[in-house]
Design a protein around this nucleic acid. Structure first.
Length: 954
DNA sequence: TCTCTGCTTAGAGGA
């Protein structure tokens, strides 16, 4: 077992050669002293491209990996044979060496498994993965029960709890809890029987046999670990083993297998875990050797466990009179270097395919399509997209424009996936300090306690340093003893981060807080010393799903308008919904009368959310079932709040407990509980509200709607929007493409234009712009109106236009310094940008805020905005009781007084300043006073920022 | 050196 007595990074001399491939020779066959052998020469630039091009000869089966290599791919070569020849060092990769393609791309073990079944199955899984199916739900419940049994829980209690936890899914499948419990019990019996047997053979004392009738067979803690998350830096792989027993992988399968041997793909899955367990074992063996003064020489392959176990629990439940064959649930198999290397080569094939976003045909492996249960789907997808596939094609291809669209977005989403993978690689590429500085980790935690919960899970507590990070309550994180890759590490859920609830007294009798308290829950106990963000591919998976559903399952008529083959149609609606704002009323009429879609362009402060709520009510009055969606939880909750204010409360909110705002929890659908009740609550709801990411999940995929109403649609990628709109016959998008665009990690521009923007540009007639704003004084809105809204944005009333800071109770204009008395002012404090901060400017901002405070403006009415998080932190220190945040995070809210800190001096370099929409957002948060603080010369280097300064000074 | 929210995780099975 790896222990915290071995600090520092992995000690295995892992990478011997690593860098981009320059050239790959054609494979050839040569005669050697051992007979005929294949070889292929690969030239790479070691030291990650910095070294002299070096040729490595790949022998035998490694030529399969050479086959998929292309120049430009990153290659790692471990433990190659080294030989001097004519003054040159030559490397060769035979049986003892390993080659890994694109090691930073973490291939999932389940993807390796799917690829082994059929490379095309691997591809199909990415496109279409949100189906609800009983065997899957049951399988999940059995796995959870298995984990509970390993943690020593009572079987009946575990079954009841886990079925309750899966309540909604079971209900949506139309099953009863009792029926599922019966099914699960059969599997649980098989697990119990096997565990009992294991205990008996392990403990050779006669006394154990006498006790065997009792329930107490709880596995000894040192023998077992359940649900072990493994990440491999060396092989570029990640996955989660069901259980590890004495260092050996155990995989639970709830299907049936009456063959003597385990299924090949099951063996491959367990072998992949064995490979990663070997890596961990080698690291700790080498560490021991170093401590003992020996050199570390064990390779991970040598250190890998030699046996894997597959537990086919359904075997115990089948009717023995009708089945022949081997019905024992547990099947062991031996793991040798051949199988381990096979896993690595398969993993390489996947990584190579991902490098240039290729699409597998099925010919890559020797699979037989006639036995495949994905055959129909495979042929249909191949036919619709006109792809080459071993199974062949059925059906008519979608139009070429749609195929191009699919290709373009598929590629862009996969680029996002690679960006997520780069985040994984940072787990080991960055030191703990670098990760902490990047806000991606909380380090130097001091473990203060652990408690085993009734569920068998563990609550782990630590004292934090109070450092900031992106980690928030409810997040799934990697909890570790200090090293998330080679140390003791577990996936954990953050339950609490914050000031310790209990305070104590110090020596002088003063009450002191005991620091920041961090509480997480995990399956296994560990010393909680560090938390890391655990990147998730969930969003990319759901975007792929949405793309697939929108293009391959929607009827052509519905897609026509998206591809410009037809103009959107409207029925004329004469009813008046809002009588004091023409544009708002027109927006509701448009949405109600839309036969395809309607677009509502809502600039800042124009009552966009109010209009949206009115629209939802009007649709409901017509008998429509409405989906209410937005990218962020905050926007969804705001929309519900607006509905509530209009007296409408027949809403079901789908989302996680931590995502949904406290005061909206009463609308939240409880996903655990009685299956029938859970499902009925969702199915009977007239209005269902959820984020677009949740719309892509299994629960929402089972629902259909008449209309989807999507708020903040300017912040959504096209596939993100489609996740909501494909669930409905028609849709209405509400947003503002002149405010911030979707957040995407990759540089690809495809995803950064919203569907809202594309449609409003191609179909201006299908949209209404709300042109009267209720937020800003006339002068404050002038710049935004001119620059971003063609001068069409105007104050809704004279009162809005003429508002002044001294309208606030107790605020006197005379108390303000003269340069701050205008509604818009500019201050040039003459500081210097250092990194992403400007301390002098921060001081000036603090002075401005202090001036407003002294004039009587309450702290709650002041907001401070800066482009960089570093400057936000700088300002936060000076202004503890004022809201300070980045532009991006301020979108959606407003304050009476807004102070903007631009940070930049001399030049305006940096991508943050390139998107002018960011200024629009920053300027339009202010109601009565706006103060711009920055370097006039730097701002003057850009035309738009220059006009901004001119306007502020005038 | 740029901004950053989603999501129960990942994996659950069928001839």
């Amino acid at each position: 077992m790896t222990d915290s007595v071995f600090p520092g990074p992995a000690l295995t001399q892992a990478v011997q050669l690593r860098g981009p491939v320059v050239e790959v020779s054609d494979p050839k066959t040569v005669n050697t002293q051992y007979g005929e052998s294949d070889l292929c020469e690969v030239t790479l630039r070691p030291d990650r491209g910095a070294g002299v091009p070096t040729t490595v000869t790949l022998w035998g089966k490694w030529t399969e990996t050479a086959d998929v290599l292309e120049p430009g791919m990153e290659l790692a070569v471990y433990d190659p044979d080294e030989r001097q020849y004519q003054g040159e060092t030559q490397y060769s990769v035979g049986s003892d060496a390993t080659v890994v393609v694109e090691p930073d791309f973490l291939v999932d073990v389940t993807d390796v498994r799917a690829w082994v079944q059929c490379p095309r199955m691997y591809y199909l899984r990415k496109l279409d993965g949100a189906d609800l199916a009983y065997p899957l739900v049951k399988g999940t419940v059995v796995h959870e029960v298995f984990g509970d049994l390993l943690r020593g829980r009572d079987v009946e209690a575990a079954i009841d709890d886990q079925i309750e936890a899966a309540g909604l899914d079971i209900g949506l499948l139309g099953r009863e809890a009792d029926e599922v419990a019966g099914d699960v019990r059969d599997h649980a019996k098989a697990i119990e029987g096997w565990l009992q047997q294991g205990t008996l053979t392990d403990e050779d004392s006669a006394a154990t046999a006498a006790d065997s009738s009792e329930r107490d067979f709880s596995p000894a803690e040192s023998d077992w670990r359940s649900e072990m998350t493994l990440i491999s830096e060396r092989y570029g792989m990640k996955g989660r083993a069901d259980a590890v027993r004495r260092g050996m992988p155990v995989e639970l399968k709830t299907g049936k297998n009456t063959k003597r041997e385990p299924r090949f793909q099951d063996k491959i899955q367990a072998t992949a875990y064995a490979l990663m367990l070997g890596e961990r074992a080698a690291n700790s063996l080498d560490a021991s050797a170093v401590m003992a003064g020996d050199g570390g020489t064990t390779t991970p392959i040598e250190a890998a466990p030699d046996t894997g176990t597959l537990l086919y629990t359904k075997n115990a439940a089948v009717d023995r009179s009708e089945e022949s064959g081997d019905l024992s649930p547990a099947k062991e198999f031996s793991i040798g270097s051949g199988l381990l290397n096979y896993v690595i080569r398969t993993r390489n094939a996947i990584a190579a395919m991902e490098h240039d976003t290729g699409v597998p045909t099925g010919y890559e492996a020797n699979t037989k399509c006639e036995y495949c249960f994905e055959q129909d789907t495979c042929m249909a997808v191949s036919g619709r997209l006109d792809q080459e596939s071993k199974a062949g094609q059925v059906g008519v291809a979608i139009p070429e424009a749609e195929r191009d669209y699919f290709e373009r977005f598929y590629t862009a989403i996969e680029a996002e996936r690679r960006a997520v993978h780069r985040e994984y690689a940072k787990l080991w590429e960055q030191t703990a300090e670098e990760r902490a500085a990047d806000d991606r980790a909380l380090v130097d935690l001091e473990p203060v306690g652990r408690t085993e919960l009734d569920s068998g899970r563990w609550e782990l507590r630590a004292r934090g340093t109070g450092a900031v990070s992106k980690i928030r309550e409810g997040d799934l994180v990697m909890a570790s003893d200090g090293d998330p890759v080679t140390g003791d590490a577990e996936l954990a859920r953050v339950e609490r981060i914050g000031e310790a609830r209990s305070a104590s007294e110090d020596a002088n009798g003063e009450t002191v807080s005991s620091g920041e308290e961090i509480v997480v829950t995990a399956d296994e106990p560990l010393d909680l010393r560090r938390l890391d963000i655990y990147p998730s591919e969930l969003t990319t998976d759901r975007l792929q799903n949405a793309l697939h559903d929108a293009l391959l399952t929607q009827p052509p008529e519905q897609k026509d308008v998206l591809f410009g083959r037809r103009d959107p149609e409207f029925e004329t609606v004469a009813e008046t919904f809002i009588d004091n704002n023409e544009a708002q009323n027109e927006a509701v009429q448009l949405a109600v009368g839309a036969e395809d879609f309607a677009l509502v362009h809502g600039p800042p402060g124009t009552g966009k959310t109010y209009t949206l709520a009115r629209m939802v009510r009007a649709l409901v009055d017509r008998g429509d079932r409405v989906l209410l969606s937005a990218f962020t939880n905050r926007a969804v909750d705001n929309a519900i709040e607006a509905l509530e204010e209009q007296g409408f409360t027949d809403i079901v909110r789908v989302g996680t407990e931590s995502g949904v705002r406290e005061d909206m929890q009463n609308y939240r659908l409880e996903q655990s509980g009685d299956p029938g009740e859970c499902a009925a609550t969702l199915q009977n709801a007239q209005v269902v509200a959820a984020t677009t990411a949740t719309c892509g999940g299994t629960a929402m995929q089972s629902q259909s709607f008449d209309v989807a109403v999507v708020d903040e649609a300017g912040q959504l990628t096209e596939p993100g929007t489609l996740a909501a709109t494909t669930l409905a016959d028609r849709f209405a998008l509400v947003g503002d493409h002149q405010q911030l665009p979707p957040v995407v990690q990759s540089e690809d521009a495809t995803l950064s234009t919203s569907l809202f923007q594309r449609l409003i540009e191609t179909h201006p007639d299908a949209g209404v712009m709300l042109d009267r704003q209720y937020r800003m004084a006339q002068h404050i809105q002038a710049f935004a109106s001119r620059e971003f809204y063609d001068g069409q944005l105007r104050p809704a009333t004279g009162e809005v236009a003429g508002q002044r800071i001294d309208d606030l109770p107790g605020v006197s204009m005379d108390a303000l310094p003269e340069h701050l008395r205008d509604r818009v002012s500019f201050v040039d404090p003459g500081g210097t940008q250092t990194g992403n901060t400007n301390p002098v400017e921060a001081d000036a901002v603090a002075e401005v805020v202090a001036a407003y405070r002294e004039a009587g403006v309450p702290a709650a009415d002041v907001g401070v905005i800066a482009p960089f998080r570093a400057q936000v932190a700088e300002l936060d220190r000076r202004l503890p009781d004022v809201a300070v945040d980045t532009v991006d995070r301020f979108q959606g809210s407003s304050k009476e007084v807004i102070v903007v800190s631009f940070v930049a001096t001399e030049t305006l370099e940096g991508p943050i300043f390139e998107d002018y929409r960011r200024i629009n957002v920053a300027m339009t948060r202010a109601k009565k006073a706006l103060v711009l603080v920055g370097d006039a010369d730097a701002l003057g280097t850009d035309e738009v920022y220059g006009r901004l300064v001119e306007w502020a000074e005038s």
